[in-house]
Computed example of a mutant assay.
Amino acid sequence: MIPEVYKVIHRQEEYPGTFTLHLESPASPPMVYGPGQFNMLYAFGTGESAISFSGLEVEEGLLVHTIRAQGTVTRALERLKKGDSLGVRGPFGRGWPLQGIEGKELLLIAGGLGLAPLRPVVYRAWQGKLKASRARLFYGARRPTELLYGDEIPHWIAKLDVVMSVDHGDNAWPGHIGVITDPLQASDIDGANTVAFLCGPEIMMRFCIQVLLRKGVPESAIYLSMERNMKCAIGLCGHCQWGPNFICKDGPVFCYQDIRAWFQIHGL
């Protein structure tokens, strides 16, 4: 429950209102975590916010978090500059089940900021460290200027199957215009041999799951990362209760088969 002090060693503006912080701890050994887990980032004098890891598990001892400024805490984190300090608690939660993808095709489906929790898995696929037979990334955003990690995506495309879509394109946009479910529906998917990881707006995940089920992907092979207002990160405060689950403790990654009944209740 006691934050450890980290320093910002690099700040990357992704697009207005969304940024990536690279954090360094004076302590050793470095924090060990899994893709899909999260930290509680503490802006001194303001409060904490739950933010997923968006970098490699061990990246020269650094922690990488991509953040959208949309509340009091995240706006305070947005004001941090290189050399500033913040508090870190973690890691928390249950991440992506990489142990269950051996020999299978892996679909990574992200919408908007949802690419951040999937980025560590993309890195593994790009480096050839996954045991999946094939990995494909479907990534949707509102417009081309709101694509995360724009300087990295060309390198990913060189080694991975990447399909991108934007809601609002222009004449310079070479990809699909519309919702990401369209190219997903048009893709050839071997449902019985596929595992899917999804992260993004809940409405996007809802429709993508419908497409996956129609293509024969079992409910037990679909995993999604949920976001709720997490405060304590250990299942005590109750802020993130969702049905019988606490997002911070039992998630944020869930198997669709286990949470289907609650996921289908709009507004829950």
Rank of each mutant, 00 (worst) to 15 (best):
12 Q>C: 05
88 V>C: 02
14 E>M: 10
87 G>Y: 13
42 Y>G: 00
76 A>C: 13
102 E>Y: 03
54 S>I: 03
113 L>V: 14
132 A>P: 09
106 L>K: 13
3 P>R: 14
5 V>A: 02
108 L>M: 13
17 G>D: 04
92 F>I: 03
16 P>W: 08
122 V>Y: 02
43 A>Y: 04
77 L>T: 02
77 L>E: 11
114 G>I: 06
29 P>D: 06
46 T>N: 04
61 G>Q: 15
33 Y>F: 09
14 E>A: 04
85 S>E: 14
132 A>V: 10
72 T>Q: 10
79 R>K: 10
81 K>S: 13
34 G>S: 11
30 P>W: 05
91 P>K: 00
18 T>Y: 03
130 L>T: 10
21 L>R: 01
100 G>C: 08
40 M>E: 00
99 Q>H: 09
124 R>C: 09
110 A>T: 13
114 G>N: 11
82 K>N: 05
64 V>P: 00
98 L>M: 09
4 E>G: 12
128 G>Q: 14
11 R>N: 07
20 T>Y: 02
30 P>R: 11
132 A>G: 13
129 K>Q: 14
24 E>P: 05
23 L>F: 04
21 L>Q: 02
31 M>T: 00
11 R>C: 08
25 S>K: 03
111 G>I: 04
128 G>H: 08
87 G>S: 11
85 S>P: 01
68 R>N: 07
42 Y>R: 02
93 G>L: 03
21 L>T: 02
56 L>V: 12
72 T>V: 12
5 V>K: 06
119 R>P: 04
29 P>C: 04
46 T>D: 01
111 G>H: 14
89 R>C: 03
7 K>S: 15
126 W>A: 14
50 A>V: 01
91 P>M: 01
79 R>M: 06
46 T>E: 14
49 S>V: 15
79 R>S: 03
18 T>P: 13
87 G>T: 03
20 T>M: 10
46 T>P: 05
6 Y>R: 01
44 F>H: 12
7 K>H: 09
119 R>V: 14
130 L>Y: 06
56 L>R: 14
45 G>W: 06
57 E>I: 06
51 I>D: 00
15 Y>M: 05
80 L>R: 01
18 T>S: 09
18 T>M: 01
41 L>N: 00
30 P>C: 03
72 T>G: 02
86 L>Y: 01
130 L>G: 11
91 P>S: 08
35 P>R: 11
30 P>T: 05
113 L>N: 01
68 R>F: 11
109 I>M: 12
89 R>F: 05
89 R>V: 04
74 T>P: 12
97 P>K: 14
24 E>K: 12
75 R>Q: 13
121 V>H: 05
86 L>V: 01
87 G>M: 02
97 P>T: 07
122 V>T: 12
109 I>Y: 13
51 I>V: 15
57 E>S: 15
5 V>G: 02
51 I>K: 01
108 L>F: 14
6 Y>G: 00
104 K>L: 11
16 P>D: 01
55 G>V: 03
74 T>Y: 06
48 E>C: 11
15 Y>F: 13
118 L>F: 12
110 A>V: 10
128 G>M: 10
67 I>Q: 08
18 T>H: 01
72 T>K: 04
64 V>E: 03
119 R>S: 07
111 G>M: 07
117 P>Q: 10
122 V>M: 10
57 E>A: 15
76 A>G: 07
101 I>G: 04
12 Q>D: 05
83 G>K: 07
116 A>D: 05
108 L>S: 06
125 A>E: 08
106 L>V: 10
